[in-house]
Design a protein around this nucleic acid. Structure first.
Lengths: 201, 201
DNA sequence: CAGGGAGGTTAGCGGTCGTTAACCTGAAGG
DNA sequence: CCTTCAGGTTAACGACCGCTAACCTCCCTG
């Protein structure tokens, strides 16, 4: 199997650069020639690897959604494996996973809630379904920790915390490069504080 | 002067529909013919009111930024007029203003952090400057309330809370139409909780 | 009642974009 | 050594898009 240290395949290069460009200038704002140039080939050469520009976006968005969901499921089952894991610890694990993703793959996080409507119907439905599962998983964990929080409010709170955590692309604009660990910890504390405040009717 | 109950002028109609369409499908994803059709005229008729598609986006983004900033300044001076206003009350007022904006003008909030890079250099610089002033105003208020919070952390916290408050476009997707007051209050509590947690080193 | 401007219309130009077609090349394999 | 094929190339097509040109109507006003 492919290990992390393997040279990235051409497809992976293309996807990475396409994600960056789409995040920077929007799906319609990027031409295939630019994507090709970003990986050292030119325009139509991309069609040896993808059926079209739409297919690149679809693969990116489906990949993000699947990755987020499977990561969250894994963290949840790990916690349930050690039975009696405190609900706080489970929520902390979810938050940590989401922050890691937001900090390490900013372009993908940006695309995730920005270009969904550019997908073909089938792909969009798939992504929406994955996203919904991810949200509901969070909602369940949050309500286990705060049983008095009504479900609609919990769902709104989860969406809002996603907004908070996904704000990372706006943070490092001037390149001040704040240490990753500090940023992660700040975001984590704020997310917990926001949930606690939401539950504190 | 024009009162709120006047019939909206054609320019205003166009701006409103353009904002909605840009938010839905992205600046490059909307054609001038669609914008025209949305207000009952067709395509090139728009050029009697705007110099071009770029000009519409510029006016929208500059308008948003100015509106946010002047609203915040007004709230701040009102609070300072009543000398000795508690820092909590000032922050509450800022939060309330931002929430009102996010709930009442969702398309604009969406555009605000999504299409900035599509502007001409001069306009983009202007918008960036207005945004920066708005952020710094919040930072000052937050630090008055939480003096132990270092400035970079406060700035990050403000950006993150904006992310939280601006998540409203994601909330009402299925049209469940949750009552506005309840949503506003939930968001308000979460924002305060997030700030408190950020300051709680 | 002339006329002029505000605010439309349709036709069409020039440029860009996604995609396809046709061709090339170097390396692997029998 | 010939073949094959993955992975490129350039040329070009058709569609679309922003914008301009030219023209048409009301409606207001002197």
């Amino acid at each position: 199997m492919a290990t992390r240290t393997d040279a990235p395949t051409r497809r992976e290069q293309i996807l990475k650069e396409a994600a960056r460009l789409f995040a920077e200038r929007g799906f319609h704002g990027v031409g295939v020639d630019e994507i090709g140039a970003a990986v050292g080939i030119s325009g139509p050469g991309l069609y040896r690897h993808f059926a079209g520009k739409d297919a690149m976006l679809a693969e990116l968005l489906v990949g993000i959604s699947e990755s987020l969901l499977t990561g969250a499921k894994r963290r949840l089952t790990e916690a349930d494996g050690a039975r009696g894991t405190a609900p706080e610890a489970v929520l902390d694990s979810l938050i940590e996973g989401h922050i890691d993703f937001a900090l390490d793959d900013r372009p993908l996080i940006t695309l995730h809630d920005r270009e969904l409507d550019r997908l073909r119907d089938a792909d969009r439905k798939l992504v929406r379904q994955l996203q919904r599962q991810y949200v509901e998983l969070w909602v369940a964990v949050v309500r286990r920790l705060y049983p008095d929080l009504a479900e609609p409010a919990a769902r709104s709170a989860v969406h809002s915390v996603f907004g908070l955590l996904n704000s990372t692309p706006h943070l490092t604009r001037p390149g001040s490069l704040p240490d990753r660990a500090g940023t992660a910890e700040l975001l984590h504390r704020m997310a917990r504080g926001a949930f606690a405040a939401a539950a504190d009717s």
